[in-house]
Each structure stands twice: as C-alpha cells, then as structure tokens.
Simulated scan of single mutants.
Amino acid sequence: MLKNASNKKFAGILAALFLLVGTAHTYGQTNNPGPKFGIKGGLNLSQLYVDQPTVEDESMKAGFNFGVFGKIPINSFLAVQPEVLYSNAGSKVTYGGSDLENVLGIESGEVRFNLNYVQVPVALAVNVGPLNLHAGPYLSYLFSANVKDLKQSDLSSSDIATLDTDDFNKLDYGVMFGVGFDVKAVTIGVRYNYGFREIGNSGVAGQLTENSKNGVGQIYLGFGL
C-alpha cells in the first residue's frame, strides 16, 4: 500500500517535470525574438589612470558615443550584440614637479587628452525579461587625437603642441560589460570599457601617459527595429 502510494507520488512528480519542460520549450520557441538593428548614442565619462610620478591629479573627461547596433538572438535567453560606435576618450591630467620641465621641456600644469575612436564591441547578452546583462571584447581604432596644454598661453612653446595622432597607438582593445533594459523598440543601459593597451607609443606622449590605458563609462539610449 505504502509502495503504491510512493509510486503514484513519483509518477505525479515526473509528469509535472515533463509538463514544465514542455512548457518552457514551447515558450522558448514561440517567444524567440527576431534580429534587431538600430541606432544608439549617449554620454562617455573617461579616465586614463596615468601611472607617472609627476602626476598630481587626474579628472574625468566628458564625451559622447553614437553609432549602430545589432542584436542577433541565439535563443530566447542569449543573443550576440555587435556594434560600430564613434567614441570619445581621454582625461584631464595635472602634472607637477621640476622633473617635468627638465626632462620633457614643458611646464607643470594641466594637460587635456582628447582621443577619438571608432569602436567595434561584440557582446554576448543574457536576457532575463526586459533586463539584459552583456559582456565581451572590443577593438578600437584611433582616427584623431588632440592634446592641449591648458597652462601654456602660447602652445608653440610647448612640446605638447607637436603631439598628434601618430604619437599614440592606433589600435586599442579590451573588454566591456554592462546592463541594459529593452522595452519594445527602446533600449537603455550603462556600460564600462576597460582597455588593455597603453595609449602612448613613444616620445613625449609615451612619457606623459606612461602605463595609462583607457577606462570609459557609458550611458546610452538606443532605438531598434
């Protein structure tokens, strides 16, 4: 009698599990979203984290990002999200100490680094209802750089005046991760990009930005179809 009751209980649990699996499978098939493509843009907050002994202070630089994105579903929970973005990076750095002038030939003061990239991130997105968690690698190409000595009234007297795109590494790469919300055609979110490569390649640029890598926080709004 007890054995029969146990068998019936086990059969009931087994049937419930099959029903649950079948329901989940049907949901995944009927609610598997199609590909989405759209435009996005927003605010960048960037910092270089310069590891240089003459650096006295460093502050974030505000910029912007904009571009196009795609969201290609693997199933109802996972999607691949490639993007092509224009993205500002850089920082405002305060240098001090006699070594700066003796070694680099420039006065102590504030220097603003403006670095403009074409960025291609590719994220794996995990969708939980309208929420998505995403992470993946990115590759960026530096197409222009502008460096300004904020203390010098005559930039031609400073070695910083000669710095241009060729003084910085053209390629940057790293990882990014973030969280977003998808509500119908609208997507909003925040993301952080962490670079692996030093930005300066040689000379004054390399010394001013010694061991510095891009760190960029992003807030974005997008519209997709």
Results as ranks from 00 to 15, higher is better:
187 T>C: 12
98 S>V: 13
157 S>N: 13
54 T>Q: 10
17 L>R: 09
216 V>P: 06
164 D>S: 15
190 V>W: 00
152 Q>Y: 01
8 K>Q: 11
158 S>V: 07
201 N>E: 14
190 V>E: 01
61 K>M: 15
3 K>R: 10
37 F>Q: 02
54 T>H: 03
65 N>P: 01
2 L>R: 07
223 F>T: 08
15 A>G: 14
179 V>S: 07
195 G>R: 06
69 F>N: 09
67 G>H: 02
137 P>K: 08
189 G>R: 04
81 Q>A: 12
202 S>D: 15
122 V>F: 00
78 L>Y: 03
26 T>Y: 03
164 D>F: 04
165 T>G: 08
1 M>H: 07
33 P>R: 09
183 V>C: 05
5 A>M: 08
9 K>G: 03
75 N>K: 02
68 V>N: 00
60 M>E: 02
88 N>F: 01
62 A>C: 05
183 V>Q: 04
15 A>I: 06
8 K>T: 05
126 V>T: 12
52 Q>V: 06
221 L>Q: 04
122 V>L: 11
70 G>P: 10
140 S>G: 15
13 I>N: 09
192 Y>E: 12
63 G>Y: 01
107 E>Y: 01
141 Y>A: 11
188 I>G: 14
74 I>G: 03
83 E>S: 08
95 Y>V: 12
153 S>Q: 09
92 K>T: 15
137 P>V: 12
33 P>W: 06
30 T>R: 06
51 D>Q: 11
154 D>K: 02
83 E>K: 08
94 T>K: 13
124 L>G: 05
131 L>E: 10
225 L>P: 00
8 K>R: 10
105 G>D: 08
121 P>L: 07
173 Y>T: 07
133 L>V: 14
25 H>A: 15
33 P>H: 09
150 L>W: 00
200 G>D: 10
56 E>D: 15
29 Q>E: 13
40 K>G: 06
214 N>E: 07
209 T>S: 11
183 V>F: 11
93 V>M: 07
43 L>R: 02
185 A>Q: 07
